[in-house]
Design a binder for these strands. Structure first.
Lengths: 220, 220
DNA sequence: TTAATATTTTAGACAAACCTAAAAAAAGTT
DNA sequence: AACTTTTTTTAGGTTTGTCTAAAATATTAA
């Protein structure tokens, strides 16, 4: 089976919005895809007819096994291309997402397998997100939000949840990237902002909002 | 200006079918694009409205300066991707075309410039066709059809005009590739087939039809 | 130069993916 | 529980790119 770009965009959006919720709301999909709720309903009916989702009117939507398989394929293509763009073409990590959005829709199986081989079967993309292998399996990651890291405990940045150019720009300015080792020196109760220390550089302050979107793991 | 995949396919087809003819016929476009003449007429009106072609009803179509610029951009993307697939991902030259048909529609200017740089600014794709540079300029090639090569004169294969998998398969079987040195030993008047000799291998026969689609240059 | 044939265009439809406005259902509030 | 607000769906349109069938134009042949 082959899917249109729109169908793939919906499947991917359902996959991403699902998280650990029970199901995804029509309105949330509309917001994510910059479209209208009525359009989402139309497409959900189509995807249900193709047996890729479990959909009951007014009750939200979730992927079924087949849909999840498709979603993982799209995610795999997206993240492999991101890796290619960053690693081979020297795109900076805040530029890769947009181009990968287009490349991910190219469906040649052979292309993706050859690309994967060429890249050396990478396990993570430039944002720290795991890349599904050709069977849809991916490395488990323990993503601790920076907000929950105890004080004075060195940890390694291993992911960011939001990939908007604005946020990635902000991280770049603070010299925070995947692999950066940092620790939290102080938390301010008033606005929940926190003081961050990166080795050999002066401390600086980040907002709670930013901290929530940075994931770390303890140094091993 | 940004163009749809369909629009780009039409522009590319007009570019390729034009050759040294005065204009391109509606029927020929329909055949090339696997669509119907009526659909072609519709699209020609649209492209004319966008000022990319010169089109007069019943009189055929040609690209104007702007259209030719767009076409060269598409050809550039196509051939760069072909080069990438063959050179980096180890696709064989008869597999690259189909995938490049999809990749060529990804429009990021930055992607193509970075790719070009990464590949080392190649001048020819795996089929021997010249790759336009970022200004649309390409290396002049003297493409002598094999049918016009004099007897017993060594020459280098520098291109093929038809890129159907069938033909490329045939060439592969005959060990003919870009760069192969060969000479014509004999021409048979009856069916215009010809006897070909590649150094250190036995002579073999090829049809006139195949010979017309193989281009060579004299050894330098 | 008229008739036959081939090519091209027009007219009217259709599917995919979107839209707005209104109706229906669910959730939240008093 | 009844009312209000929010969410979601339905109904009916629009645009893009396609189609078939019929009409118009151009080309070829007698």
């Amino acid at each position: 089976m082959n899917f249109s770009i729109s169908e793939e965009d919906y499947i991917k959006a359902i996959y991403h919005l699902k998280g650990d919720k029970l199901s995804v709301a029509t309105n949330d999909l509309a917001a994510e895809l910059h479209t209208r709720p009525a359009s989402v309903t139309d497409m959900l009916k189509k995807l249900a007819a193709k047996k890729l989702i479990h959909y009951q009117p007014y009750k939200g939507v979730m992927l079924n096994t087949e849909g999840r398989k498709i979603a993982l394929g799209i995610v795999r293509r997206h993240r492999l291309w991101e890796y290619f763009l960053a690693e081979k073409l020297n795109f900076s990590w805040n530029e890769v997402h947009e181009v990968a959005e287009q490349l991910e829709h190219i469906s040649s199986k052979k292309l993706i397998e050859k690309l994967d081989e060429y890249l050396g079967y990478p396990k993570f993309d430039p944002h720290g997100d795991p890349i599904p292998d050709h069977l849809g399996r991916m490395q488990a990651t323990d993503h601790l939000p920076l907000t929950e890291l105890p004080l004075d405990t060195p940890a390694v940045v291993n992911g960011v949840s939001d990939q908007s150019p604005e946020m990635l720009e902000l991280l770049r300015r603070r010299n925070i990237a995947i692999g950066t080792v940092l620790e939290v020196k102080k938390k301010f109760g008033f606005d929940h902002s926190m003081e961050i220390k990166i080795k050999d550089t002066p401390v600086f302050i980040i907002t709670e909002q930013l901290a929530q979107n940075i994931f770390v793991q303890y140094e091993s």
